[in-house]
Nucleic acid binder design. Sequence first.
DNA 1: CATGAATGAGGCTTCATTCAT
DNA 2: GATGAATGAAGCCTCATTCAT
Lengths: 232, 232, 232, 232
Amino acid sequence: MSEASSQTRRQKVVEKEQSIIAATRTVFREHGSENVKISEIAKLAGLAEGTVYIYFKNKNALLLAVATDFYEDLTRDAAKGIKELAGTSDRLRFLARHHFERVADEWPMIALAMSPYQASNEYRNTEGYQLNRKYVEVFDQVIRESVNRGEIREELPLNIIRDIFYGGLEYAARTMRLRSTKTDLDKAVDDFMLVFSSGIFRSGPPKGVASGSGDMEAVVARLEKVAATLEK
Amino acid sequence: MSEASSQTRRQKVVEKEQSIIAATRTVFREHGSENVKISEIAKLAGLAEGTVYIYFKNKNALLLAVATDFYEDLTRDAAKGIKELAGTSDRLRFLARHHFERVADEWPMIALAMSPYQASNEYRNTEGYQLNRKYVEVFDQVIRESVNRGEIREELPLNIIRDIFYGGLEYAARTMRLRSTKTDLDKAVDDFMLVFSSGIFRSGPPKGVASGSGDMEAVVARLEKVAATLEK
Amino acid sequence: MSEASSQTRRQKVVEKEQSIIAATRTVFREHGSENVKISEIAKLAGLAEGTVYIYFKNKNALLLAVATDFYEDLTRDAAKGIKELAGTSDRLRFLARHHFERVADEWPMIALAMSPYQASNEYRNTEGYQLNRKYVEVFDQVIRESVNRGEIREELPLNIIRDIFYGGLEYAARTMRLRSTKTDLDKAVDDFMLVFSSGIFRSGPPKGVASGSGDMEAVVARLEKVAATLEK
Amino acid sequence: MSEASSQTRRQKVVEKEQSIIAATRTVFREHGSENVKISEIAKLAGLAEGTVYIYFKNKNALLLAVATDFYEDLTRDAAKGIKELAGTSDRLRFLARHHFERVADEWPMIALAMSPYQASNEYRNTEGYQLNRKYVEVFDQVIRESVNRGEIREELPLNIIRDIFYGGLEYAARTMRLRSTKTDLDKAVDDFMLVFSSGIFRSGPPKGVASGSGDMEAVVARLEKVAATLEK
DNA sequence: CATGAATGAGGCTTCATTCAT
DNA sequence: GATGAATGAAGCCTCATTCAT
């Protein structure tokens, strides 16, 4: 077998794997995670059931491949986007939009594909966990850098920041999915970032010391008030 | 048949339903959402399999009942807790802790129990959706009130606030579950509230140049807009 | 549940297990070991396929139960027969006839039922091996006793004696099975015992000193031959 | 096409057939008779799966070819060995050793390869049966000759003698296979021949009551001596 | 001839649901 | 009402066999 033909063969295998993975994603999207049967996937990929097993050892392996594939894309694009941006705000906004978009369609699939791994007590050793780790690492780096620059309050645990970011995004994506009226994606991301960045309160949580004067925050608050008055 | 005996009968039925629901929850917790079999539930409830079908039309109906039951509890307790507290901060903190606690154990169950309903395009008409609406309504009220009091920035859509709150909490709960070391629940809630209340940035998101504070640019932009408006 | 009804239930279970085991044996006999499918067994037992799995965990468990059942019968009857007989000759003849009869029909089944166990390198730890051990132990005891009484040459390893006994019987049974003409069972056992007891040679293997002994009949036969020769 | 090239072609075909047969044997030995897949055989033979079907009509045909090949070897070697030996004892010992050796490794394969044929009611017409006939014919000849020479008691049916010989050997081989401690092959054959030749009893089967007057054995010994003398 | 990807029949097994007792 | 044995549809997976290249 010539090297060229081997190349071609390898390519064909990869292509077919990809087509099965693609079919699996489609089944998830269109049939709901309950009805992800090999028979359905095969039908959509235009193959016999047995053929799926040539390319994937069993159903779990296929689902894991789907998740891996998805995550790798996600992680690559996230990392690339970050590199091209400098400021923390822009970076986070990019990550939010990126995640929002991708996740809107495919998260349920990922959730199911990885559910057997989450069940395990040893989840942290599973491939599913590792994939997720690598993905969020991009976010974590952005945050760490920003903390080092003194932009982010260092008393906030990274875990919490991350959970709010991704948990919030997932829910927001779900909410958007449920609304028949197509909300503007950019608007949604703007709003999300607004809350994520500055919290919900006008200026620090109420019901506490009314935070100092002389500090920047107070100035901003005052200006904002003026602005608000003027706007009326 | 006397009314009293009918009462008693009704009570007995409710009791049995409750015992089946309780058994179902236990199975979820102990066997993981993959392995929730009627046989297992019946065994735990001390009943024959067939008996389950006397009280619930089918498995889906049972799961929905479990979810309903869970949500009603959740909603009642949330509403009650709110009533006993006055300040927004305290109320949100209470809701956060309450959700965190409950969700940590039982969310996987709820997710599965409602998954057939989420699949539907008509999700918003489903009972699952309605249950969720009622629950988050408690949160929504707290926020609306606070907005009215001028504590919360009114430009923030309630949806986003809510998604970040619950999405963030769910992820935080999941993170905690995955860690073998039992993190302190109160500490976690504190941290969560810190971010949720005041955002991640020291004072407004930075913008490229680590401009000390506030979202200076945003403020400027807004002021310019106001100026423009005034010019007209 | 009353004790009596529990008794009855237990009985019913045992009965059904037995009927499935019986059906399995029949399938073996009539369809050949290639076609022992659960579907076939269920059909013969008048049950749905799923029902088989109520009584046996899986196909292997069923086959093992069949083998166990068979062996236990075999062993019990063998032991019982031995107890009622005194002389070694009679005992061995009984064991031979007993084995011959039983094995003629069912050995192929047993062989298959236990084949997964024989494959293992750890065969000696398997249940299949243990069943066989217990069975041949009856034979072994007869031989040991006889050796102690000085009837059997003690230089012969028990292993070899046993292998020749059971191996020979199995082959003889197979031979008989293959012949359409129904050979007389007693005659076959007689012949078998003759060879087993006294070996094939008239008196010790030829090509050496015509050692030791030999059996009476053979000697008489030879003497007659000699007489005949002399008469010429 | 020249005759020579046709010859060559034929040779090539035979070679390839042989390589497939050899691969099949190896698979049997190494994977156990349960897991003999065409894919495995092809891999071992360095061929594609489809190629196997060029040389053999189907799996059964291949297995039969394997059995045939094996039997032909076995028979040829047996016949050759016999020709080079004169005495019955030596000949039988040779056959025993020969069979023992070969069978130890490969019998499971043969058993499986021929099992579809044994199932048949028409087994005696099958190729499997014929192969076996030819093989044991070598043994049968040795016995018949010996009977004619008066060494073997003519009242013993050849069938029984043969069944005990081969059945005993097969079991003995199996026993040896199961023991982790590698028993000495020659010792095993010696022991086997001892029992096979002279039976298990010291001198004729005992008969419950030690019948005779004086000592039966002594009488026999005396008569035998007379017989021996007369024979000379 | 050789290939090996594709096929699909058919086996095993699970489990929600039913129904005679 | 309660039972739980029985059902059978349906899913996963294997592997002998075929066929276009």
